[in-house]
C-alpha cells in the first residue's frame, strides 16, 4: 500500500471500509473550508454513515457497508478447546 514519495499523494481503497489518504493533500469541507486532519495519514468515509465526515469514524462496520461480495465460507475457523471454557464475554 506504499510507494508514494514524501509529498506525492496516494489514495488506497480499503475493502468494506474507508479510503486511506497519504501525502500532501488539502482537504476541504462542503463549504470549502480547509480542514485540519490532525494526522499524516487519514481515512475518508466512503459509506456516508460517519458522524465526522469527510473522515471515517468506523461507522461503516455498524451499517454493514460492503464493497466486496461476502464469501460463503467463514474467514476464520477455530480449534476446539480442549480444557477450559472462555470466561465471561464483554467488550470495551
Amino acid at each position: 500500500m506504499t510507494g508514494a514519495g514524501a509529498g506525492a499523494p496516494s489514495v488506497v481503497a480499503c475493502p468494506n471500509g474507508p479510503l486511506i489518504v497519504r501525502g500532501d493533500v488539502e482537504i476541504r469541507d462542503e463549504r470549502g473550508e480547509l480542514l485540519d486532519p490532525h494526522r499524516r495519514t487519514v481515512a475518508l468515509c466512503r459509506c456516508g454513515a460517519s458522524a465526522i465526515r469527510p473522515f471515517c469514524d468506523g461507522s461503516h462496520k455498524l451499517t454493514g457497508f460492503r464493497t466486496v461480495r461476502p464469501e460463503r465460507e467463514p474467514a476464520v475457523v477455530y480449534d476446539e478447546l480442549t480444557r477450559l471454557e472462555p470466561g465471561p464475554r464483554g467488550r470495551r
Partner: peptide
C-alpha cells in the same frame, strides 16, 4: 483459554 483461530 483461547481457541486457536485460523484464517481460511
Amino acid at each position: 483459554l483461547i481457541p486457536q483461530p485460523h484464517a481460511t
